[in-house]
Design a protein around this nucleic acid. Structure first.
Lengths: 350, 350
DNA sequence: AAAGTTGTTGTAATCGGTTGCAATATAAAA
DNA sequence: TTTTATATTGCAACCGATTACAACAACTTT
């Protein structure tokens, strides 16, 4: 058909309308499956649209509807296993629901986080999914969104605010379980390697650590708490710090796996037996935890699921299916995964 | 000022124009720093815009300009270290240049890849960055883009097409180096674990493996080539296959690290000494390669940089700064990283 | 003083859908 | 047959920014 060879120009609903001798309004309704359009007409419209190679112009549509079908995502960093799982989960849900994701990294600074938020605001995202940077103190930079009623959902690294839902795991409980487990394996002097305490995740894990000590009537020794940025290098530095302690600890609980693993390896190289001398536990169930020797005890942390839940909640709020304003916090399951790095009874060491 | 309290309504250039008693056209020009606008007027416009809390409406602008400032990215999967580094690199470059990224996953199927491409096409991305799925046979699904002159750049898993630039490393050479290194360590029967040979990366690595054998006058034994999907499970399966060989190989070169590591660990558990009995090498320099014992020899693969280069090239093409149509392939540096898993001379084994 | 520049601003059409309201046709009820 | 309800469709005004072109002022040049 010669219709196909209309050249490179973009087909609009006006072209379809002209071809079919109906009004653009009807074409628009037809394409959107509006109930007030005759089924026959719809069919004709769809066919002609396909035949002419029509594609909807999102901008014209967005401009009119005042809606973008776009969700903004701000994360500290993309290149961690946990974060890319989260994004993967979000992408799936969003994609299925016809939403696009715009992703940006704060690189752990509040400043870039604010800039990114502004960009997202100008791009008029329909909603925001955020995991906070290390040094974010307040959420002033999200005020514009809240003022306009644009939903902001925090995940993992959350901020308590009445207008914002947070999606987390119970970090206190998980850390408490980890610590209790170590204590159960005979540990009495447990080092805790923590991150920036501004962030709930690390503060809560520290709290869980403290609670567990208290539960077992162990005294809290602040010298055993090492604050770091939880990087691989920080794990090595922590190991060196541990090696210089007067009395060596008999357990280490690090707030993430990357740091736990590098710390473990450094100590091992220094001749320390894991878990006999020092039992180890991390957090996240990162792939490396299953590779390091001995395998690392850790907390399984559902990244993919967290992404799905965050996106799902945002989208159903946007669609009016549900209202997240009533929901303040969603807590996902997490699970202690016991592996050889913390098992002193030989039962599970093969 | 009462100007600030105009409520929740969105400020437009018309509002600014009215307030300043000038025309919207001048406001538009002023905000875009058009040279024909008086400096004083510009200053007034900027100030008023700020004061009134104006934000540009991207849709109106895009609708008019026929441009989106958005780049589409299609990758097989997000949750691998390599891929998230790539995305991180792209995000940085794009963000700095005022572009947004729309990201989607093909989940390794050509079908979803095609769907995603269609979505991107409808979202009218200015350009596309693609790493192909496992089973993609052709690039029909990108024809719409090419026909319209929308640039498509492939990275890592590329497709040779005169209209598309590809960004890769020299997989043949890298694999040849790996294999030569193993041969240099005394290996004579080297297993190669490869992926889907439709993809250049795996086909090329296989080619490099073969070339290296030829270089050293070693006979090619097709039984030593194991084709898999390169997953962790495939590594384990490969190990089992290896254990059942009549004559054990003395080297294994896997086309990625995840697979290499699980294979190595399985063999090790079966009592095989690494590297004495079987020397090992992988590909990617994934974090796990530095954690497994012994540490894995591998090829350092610049993911972050690849992302930067891909995005940079696309953007400068879009801005007219450079033209990628003349460039068909960009090859990035890669580097053999020798670690204990392949070192038989004790020199580097501590 | 007339003509030509240069600098600055305004007018109005345009990008492509969406949607409240009115109009018409058709069928059902009175 | 008239009235009323229902199903379809069209009209036209948006949404907010961009830009070709015209208009005008102020200043030079001849």
């Amino acid at each position: 058909m010669e219709l196909l060879s209309t050249g490179n120009k973009e087909i609009t609903i006006y072209d379809i309308a002209r071809e079919l001798n109906i009004s653009p309004a009807t074409v628009s309704r037809g394409l959107n499956d509006h109930p007030a359009v005759n089924k026959e007409t719809k069919k004709k419209i769809f066919n002609m649209a396909k035949e002419m190679g029509y594609r909807s112009n999102t901008f014209a549509s967005n401009l009119r509807r005042q809606r973008t079908n776009t969700i903004g995502v701000i994360v500290p960093r993309l290149n961690s296993n946990f974060m890319s799982s989260v994004i993967a989960g979000m992408e799936k849900v969003a994609n299925d629901a016809g939403y696009n994701l715009i992703i940006s990294q704060s690189l752990e600074t509040a400043k870039k986080e604010a800039t990114n938020a502004q960009t997202m605001f100008n791009s008029r995202v329909d909603g925001l999914l955020v995991s906070l940077a290390y040094d974010t103190d307040n959420i002033e930079h999200f005020k514009d969104f809240l003022k306009k009623g644009i939903p902001v959902i925090f995940f993992d690294r959350v901020f308590n605010h009445k207008q914002c839902t947070g999606i987390v795991i119970d970090n206190v409980k998980a850390a408490q379980e980890v610590t209790s487990h170590l204590i159960g394996q005979g540990c009495r002097r447990i080092v805790h390697i923590t991150g920036n305490l501004k962030r709930n995740v690390y503060a809560d894990r520290l709290k869980g650590y403290k609670y567990a000590l208290a539960d077992h009537n162990l005294e809290l020794d602040n010298n055993l708490i090492i604050q770091t940025n939880l990087s691989v290098e920080d794990g090595i530095a922590a190991a060196e710090k541990i090696l210089q302690m007067n009395t060596l600890p008999d357990g280490v609980f690090a707030a993430n796996d990357a740091c736990a693993v590098s710390c473990l390896q450094t100590l091992k190289q220094a001749g320390i037996a894991i878990p006999q001398d020092i039992a180890f536990a991390g957090f996240n169930n990162d792939p490396v935890s299953k590779v390091v020797e001995p395998n690392l005890t850790t907390v399984d942390y559902p990244g993919y699921e967290m992404g799905e839940v965050a996106a799902q909640n945002l989208i159903s709020h946007l669609n009016g299916t549900s209202n997240i304003n009533s929901t303040n916090t969603i807590i996902l399951r997490s699970e202690l995964v016991i592996r050889a790095s913390s098992l002193r009874s030989d039962s599970l060491n093969k």
